[in-house]
Amino acid sequence: MKHTRLLLIVLPMLFGAFQSGQVVVEQESTSKWVTLFNGKDLNNWLPKIVGHKLGENFGNTFRVKDGILSIRYDAYDSFNNRFGALYYNKKFTNYRLKVEYRFVGNTTPGAPSWGYRDGGIQYHCQDPASLDINQPFPVCLEYNLLGGNGKDERPSGEICANGIYVEINGKRNASYCTPPTVKKTLHGDQWVTAEIDVQDGKIKHYINGEEVLEFENPNYDSANALAKKFILNGNDLVKDGYISLQSNSHPMDFRKIEIMEYR
Rank of each mutant, 00 (worst) to 15 (best):
F37P: 08
H205E: 05
Q22P: 12
P136D: 07
N248F: 13
N235E: 13
K2S: 09
K48G: 04
I207M: 15
Q135C: 07
G150D: 09
S249D: 04
Q135A: 15
K91E: 11
V238F: 05
S156V: 09
L213I: 12
V238A: 10
R72V: 11
Y88T: 08
S247I: 02
V99G: 04
I207A: 00
I49M: 08
T193I: 14
K184V: 04
L14I: 05
K53P: 03
D236F: 05
R96D: 01
Y143R: 04
L42Y: 05
D77W: 05
Y95Q: 07
R72W: 13
D240E: 15
A225L: 10
L7S: 15
I257L: 07
L131F: 14
I71T: 04
L54S: 01
K32Q: 10
N217T: 03
N44W: 13
T4V: 10
F83H: 11
D66L: 08
I196G: 00
N38L: 14
V99N: 02
V166W: 00
E195C: 01
N224K: 03
V166A: 00
R63Q: 15
A111W: 05
I196R: 00
L69Q: 06
S244T: 07
D74Q: 12
N38W: 08
N57F: 03
Y116W: 09
N162H: 15
I9H: 11
K65V: 15
P136G: 01
T35A: 15
A129G: 14
